[in-house]
């Protein structure tokens, strides 16, 4: 019970931040991904763009939004907590580091739900015809978020300085998306890059989201791979996050 209260309090502290300073979230999770969608449609060249392509771009933008929310924005908040001494306040409390992690993950998940829903509504207004499988989409979004949050927790726990950490989270947040074949097909990639890109969590995420947007449920290896990566990054995050300094 105490643990749930702790997690919810961590969540509420961060939610207050979002309520009072929503700008960065709106920009990173909504405006950029929408702009990227429009951009991808515009440069795709074809006169009459196929529904399949539109769905791929939409899936790309959703993954972009998730990545910005979980790595760039959340990573920034976690680094700020650490390097402005706020984490020291948590360290003074009988609060488990894992409760802190769960609290910020719930915060990130809430934003992911908000961001994804908004993007779907915007896409519909832009004429994208998706037949969304809510269960399937939720599962992929959940796994993607957990996996990427694990990365930002690890970076924020280990970065030696604010600038080192934010450089890492910024480049990862954008890089993971642009290295994955989300706005273009895998075939269009140079061979060397595509062998790397195949293994990125964002590639699995994009493919999972795209399947969910066509109303299908993607089981099989891709989701399993995403789940395995989630397990890895999260356990790393939980391991590295400690109140006590050596």
């Amino acid at each position: 019970m105490k643990r749930i209260t702790d997690i919810l309090c961590v969540f509420r502290i961060h939610l207050a931040r979002l309520r009072r300073e929503a700008g960065p979230f709106v920009l990173a999770a909504l405006i950029f991904p929408t702009a990227m969608y429009l951009f991808a449609v515009a440069v795709s060249g074809a006169e009459e763009i196929s529904d399949e392509k539109r769905l791929r771009f939409l899936a790309g933008s959703i993954v972009f939004s998730l990545s910005m929310t979980s790595i760039s924005w959340l990573g920034y908040l976690l680094l700020e907590n650490r390097f402005t001494g706020r984490l020291k306040l948590f360290a003074t409390l009988p609060l488990a580091p894992s409760s802190y992690i769960f609290g910020v993950i719930i915060f990130a998940l809430a934003q992911a739900a908000l961001g994804t829903t908004t993007l779907l509504i915007v896409a519909r207004a832009l004429g994208v015809r998706a037949n969304v499988s809510i269960a399937s989409l939720s599962l992929v979004v959940l796994l993607t978020m957990l996996c990427l949050c694990g990365l930002s927790v690890s970076i924020a726990a280990r970065a030696r300085s604010f600038s080192e950490g934010s450089l890492l989270t910024d480049s990862l947040g954008a890089g993971l998306v642009f290295l994955a074949p989300v706005y273009y097909s895998a075939q269009a990639m140079p061979a060397a890059l595509s062998s790397v890109s195949k293994w990125l969590p964002t590639s699995f995420a994009a493919s999972g989201v795209q399947t969910a947007l066509t109303g299908n449920f993607q089981a099989g290896t891709e989701l399993l791979a995403l789940a395995l990566m989630t397990l890895m990054t999260l356990s790393l995050g939980f391991r590295l996050m400690r109140w006590r300094e050596e």
């Binding site: 502290i13 207050a16 931040r17 309520r19 009072r20 300073e21 907590n81 402005t84 001494g85 706020r86 020291k88 306040l89 003074t92």
Partner: peptide
């Protein structure tokens, strides 16, 4: 030296 949560 501790930081406060400024938006609260």
């Amino acid at each position: 030296e501790g930081g406060v949560f400024e938006t609260l």
